[in-house]
């Protein structure tokens, strides 16, 4: 991968990452780099280890070895609650909306970790649905609204690197389109985004680069410009 692109800033560098859930060995030496302002996807089949890669970055798996540098800082010995403080916003698979909290409480739950996050008003004007239903129970929202909530709550924190796991899962095309617009807007603001995505058609036009994960390893890296040329290779990996 090219290291000569002038003032490029490595926001994330993962090397030789292994991860385990108890006895089961899930990641087998992940290597990847994400520069500031990039939108990178992790593609792969079910069970390939993409969600686990994000969780490993968050220090949410049983055991890890290898190296994860965030903003040039080694984080392997960092306590889980200190990762977010480095400017990382995590949107888990299945959204992680809290049932015992109202929409607004869900939204304001994650502490602000950096300045420059969106204010509550900005968020409500971006997602008017959330404003209307701000006092209802978090899990009483529709699936799409919950997805917006899960995304919105990390935008408030000022995180400048977002780890988004399957945010389009089970959503109607209109909402998917809307989420795409949101991501583009965030990218324009300079945020770094790592997107775990099943829906390649959603991810393709947004992403700068794609990593393909298989059996806990990165098996292919494709930049947006190579997409056309490598389409068949990708199709092979993803089993499309």
């Amino acid at each position: 991968m090219s290291q000569n692109a002038g003032k490029e800033y490595e926001q994330l560098r993962i090397s030789g990452l292994h991860a385990f859930y108890g006895e089961s060995h899930v990641l087998h030496g992940i290597e990847l780099i994400v520069n500031r302002g990039e939108l990178v996807t992790l593609l792969g089949r079910n069970g390939a280890g993409r969600s686990t890669t994000l969780k490993a970055i968050m220090n949410m798996v049983g055991r890890r070895t290898g190296s994860i540098m965030i903003n040039g800082e080694e984080t392997m010995s960092c306590a889980p609650h200190n990762i977010a403080r480095l400017g990382v916003g995590y949107c888990p698979e299945h959204r992680g909306i809290f049932a015992s909290l109202s929409v607004q409480e869900n939204l304001t739950l994650p502490p602000v970790v950096r300045s420059g996050g969106m204010s509550l008003e900005e968020i409500y004007s971006m997602f008017p649905n959330l404003y209307e239903r701000r006092f209802s129970q978090g899990t009483k929202l529709s699936g799409g609204e919950q997805q917006m909530l899960a995304l919105a709550r990390i935008l408030r924190t000022g995180a400048n690197m977002l780890l988004l796991d399957e945010i389009t899962e089970g959503l109607a095309p209109v909402i998917v389109e809307k989420l795409g617009e949101v991501l583009l807007a965030l990218k324009k603001k300079g945020l770094t985004i790592i997107l775990v995505e099943q829906n390649f058609h959603f991810a393709a036009p947004l992403a700068d680069r794609h990593y393909v994960v298989e059996h806990g390893q990165i098996v292919e890296e494709v930049s947006a410009s190579e997409l056309h040329a490598k389409q068949s290779v990708l199709d092979g990996y993803l089993g499309v």
């Binding site: 968050m58 220090n59 949410m60 306590a79 889980p80 609650h81 200190n82 990762i83 977010a84 403080r85 995590y90 888990p92 992680g96 809290f98 049932a99 015992s100 909290l101 409480e105 304001t108 739950l109 994650p110 502490p111 970790v113 990390i154 924190t157």
Partner: peptide
Amino acid sequence: TKLGAYLRAGTEDSQLMQGFGINVP
């Protein structure tokens, strides 16, 4: 209150709370 929201959320999923930067221990 906010503190109470932490408690309630921690009751549901304390790992995710850590991911948000809350000192769950």
